[in-house]
Simulated assay, not measured.
Amino acid sequence: MNIDCNIDGSVDVTGCKLSIYPMSDQFSGIITDAIQQLATLKLPVWQKTDMFSTTYRGRQENVVNIVKAACQLAYKDSVHTVYELTFSKGCPGDTDADHYLNEEITPIKFDRELPNIPVACKYSFYAFGEADYMQDIEKIVNLAEEKGLNPQGMHYATKLSGSIDDLFDYFNQALSYAHEHIRHYVMEVTISVNSPSTK
């Protein structure tokens, strides 16, 4: 994992690096169409796309809403797609997004309703510089149980299943809890839709 940090940044900036992997011959168009649809909006976050992913930085709720919308926009009924997300907060290298912390929480609106798709997810949560981090991770996993996402332990990760609406509502809750209790943390997430493995 490569996270650029220096000593001058804001610990309040939430960041997410998003990569989209459609299992389709039209993968390039699916990815660029989703990102470009978002780019046409005046988004209340810092953003940058490179050859690997698109990074969003700013106020937590706005970042989560935008990443969710990107996943929904890239969804195709018959296409197995995997989304890789890295959420981070407390990294002192997020200076280029500080001014976006003043933005209001802004729902992402399109001329159509985005689909509330069924998803499978695995995620791992990492707390840095915390001696008693396991109690916080336990609390974060319990929030998923309360959300009805059926958390199941697996080696090095926790599996979740449910709707994309419930999943990203949970991400907001989990990140809010972490912000209150942990100075610097990273959450690595893999989301799968339309996987043939579920059949």
Results as ranks from 00 to 15, higher is better:
residue 39 A to F: 00
residue 196 P to A: 13
residue 72 Q to G: 04
residue 184 H to N: 08
residue 36 Q to R: 11
residue 139 K to W: 00
residue 18 L to Y: 00
residue 172 N to F: 15
residue 16 C to A: 11
residue 176 S to V: 02
residue 141 V to H: 08
residue 188 E to V: 04
residue 168 F to M: 06
residue 124 S to V: 12
residue 155 H to F: 09
residue 87 F to W: 15
residue 8 D to W: 10
residue 169 D to S: 15
residue 25 D to C: 04
residue 195 S to M: 05
residue 124 S to G: 11
residue 101 L to D: 00
residue 36 Q to V: 10
residue 76 K to W: 02
residue 99 H to W: 02
residue 150 N to M: 11
residue 133 Y to P: 04
residue 83 Y to D: 06
residue 97 A to L: 06
residue 90 G to A: 03
residue 38 L to G: 09
residue 126 Y to C: 03
residue 151 P to E: 10
residue 148 G to C: 12
residue 79 V to Q: 08
residue 61 E to A: 08
residue 146 E to M: 04
residue 131 A to R: 11
residue 27 F to H: 15
residue 5 C to G: 03
residue 75 Y to V: 00
residue 24 S to A: 11
residue 76 K to C: 15
residue 174 A to S: 12
residue 77 D to H: 13
residue 172 N to K: 15
residue 34 A to D: 05
residue 31 I to H: 04
residue 18 L to C: 10
residue 134 M to G: 04
residue 110 F to D: 06
residue 144 A to R: 02
residue 146 E to H: 07
residue 36 Q to C: 08
residue 2 N to S: 14
residue 13 V to H: 01
residue 109 K to I: 15
residue 1 M to C: 07
residue 9 G to V: 02
residue 145 E to Y: 05
residue 126 Y to R: 10
residue 132 D to H: 05
residue 54 T to M: 07
residue 107 P to A: 13
residue 186 V to Q: 00
residue 134 M to Y: 13
residue 19 S to Y: 05
residue 64 V to M: 03
residue 46 W to H: 14
residue 5 C to N: 03
residue 85 L to N: 06
residue 197 S to E: 09
residue 22 P to R: 15
residue 178 A to G: 09
residue 33 D to P: 02
